[in-house]
Amino acid sequence: MIEITRTSPFNTVQDLGRPGFRHIGVTASGAMDPFALKLGNALLGNDGGSAAIEVQTFPFQLRFSASTAFVITGVDCEATLDGQTVLPWCAATADAGQVLDTAHPRHGARAYVCLAGGVDVAAVMGSCSTSLRGGFGGNGGRFLAVGDRLALGLANRAGDIPPCGLAMVEPAVMLADVFPVAPDGALLVRAIPAGEHGLFGADAERFWNQTWKLSPQSDRTGYRLSGEPIRPVTPVEMRSHGIVPGVVQVPPAGQPIIQMADANTAGGYPKIAGVIEPDLWRLGQARIGSTIRFVQSSHAEAVAIEKAMNGFVEDVRRTSGMVKRALMALA
């Protein structure tokens, strides 16, 4: 059991979401950075999709009511446990009564507090994710509040963490060749031209070439970009059709919208591109006001990146288990 002792709005319980219900208007939800969630769960020996706390407004603080292994993934939020530094991406064990505190991260947007056994809330349509727009799932369909107490699932023995803790090399380091960084700091987001790409004529080139800024009108539903507007050669009237996270729509004002984890299930704006799924987690860590540039990708490249990411998660799960067993044998 943990108790939330300090929080701001929009911090929620999330897992990998509830795909498969979009046809009845239910958005998938799920972690904005599912890669961080999977890695945290792998390090703790949890099931890959165990629920965790997504923290996107800081500071955030919780108290443990029992000895619990945990790890903070995603961003470095200068966390402390009873005042002692807790490294990001480093699993540790908290004692009953200890307080985990976080500060505003300097880089990135979202931290995931993963706990051994996972956050144990009732699954709705197969998922523990909070749907804020629908008002269901997670912790009563709402964001966390001070005084909320959350039960934890049964921890796996593989979650036993050495007394000194156990960290992993950050994915940004391990997969540096898979996720290139632009010299000017802009986030490079790979995407594939979508259905209405051809309708934008010369403006399509500007979509790819210009640097966009993430506007304050961005949230878990979608990111609105600001930059020089792009428009179809002739105005387009379309019937609403199904859309998914990653779809880049262009409303009449010409400022693109990227659908994110709480994406609408249908929309009628023309689609200029679709962000490849293995790059969505990087968008999940993009901060308001930061810059992004789209890079044309391909299905084959997306599959290759996804394979590298899955390989890393599996490597963390396998090697962390090996290290834990070796330390127990040598003790």
């Binding site: 490294l87 940004a172 290290v323």
Partner: peptide, 29 residues
């Protein structure tokens, strides 16, 4: 290990280094 584009994180005072095994880092405290 340094993260591209980010300030290098200082290790905690009670940690004198890390043992790297594949993707894992075991703090040496």
């Amino acid at each position: 290990p340094a993260v591209p584009g980010c300030q290098t994180r200082k290790r905690p005072a009670d940690t004198l280094g890390f043992l790297r095994v594949g993707p894992m880092l075991l703090p040496v405290k």
